[in-house]
């Protein structure tokens, strides 16, 4: 990452570090995976109440789905129709 890119993407954080940042560190645990291991299962899906399938779809809600033209207009979005 160039310095300009870094400033653009993380400028607020770099800026914040100018105001007395303490030494710090952390961790993030994969909660779904932790549960599946403790539960003796190979699938994290089994431990999520409403999971997506392997194509990233929620087949119960049928999401993702299309939205109305009206919504698109409000959002200033034009679809690339191919």
């Amino acid at each position: 990452m160039t310095e300009a890119e870094a400033l653009h993407k993380f400028g607020f954080l770099l800026g914040a570090f100018e105001y007395g940042a303490p030494p710090h560190g952390g961790i993030a645990f994969g909660f779904d995976r932790l549960c599946s291991i403790l539960g003796g299962s190979e699938s994290i899906r089994d431990f999520i109440a409403f999971p997506k399938n392997n194509s990233g779809r929620d087949v119960m809600l049928d999401a993702p789905g299309t939205i109305d033209q009206h919504q698109l207009d409000e959002l200033h979005i034009q679809l690339n129709k191919e």
Binding site: F31, R45, K52, N54
Partner: peptide
């Protein structure tokens, strides 16, 4: 791109500590 057993939304136990060294973090977690 979804591989088997990946979810586009998932949950983390996310933690951060200040005024610690690596050793403090390892022990805490």
């Amino acid at each position: 791109d979804l591989r088997a057993d990946r979810q586009p939304e998932f949950t983390q136990i996310d933690c951060e500590m200040a005024f610690v060294e690596q050793e403090d973090i390892l022990q805490m977690f």
